[in-house]
Amino acid sequence: MLDLRIPSGVFFALTGAILIVHSMILPGLRAPMTNANVNLYSGAVMLVFGALLLGLAARSRRA
């Protein structure tokens, strides 16, 4: 059976990477009511979450 952590991990890692790269290409991009770099911070969280899922999947494969 498919280990769901792998597709989920890849999806969030890719989405996070897209957001981070986008925030680097357009560093001044902000939403109307906040000065926070929402894409960068949210992208980083998604990238870490995706990596965590992939790490857990890899660890269970080794066990």
Binding site: H22, A31, T34, V38, N39
Partner: peptide
């Protein structure tokens, strides 16, 4: 979402 999310996170 329109006020607090820039394009990118808006897509998410």
């Amino acid at each position: 979402m329109a006020q607090f999310y820039p394009n990118g996170m808006l897509g998410v």
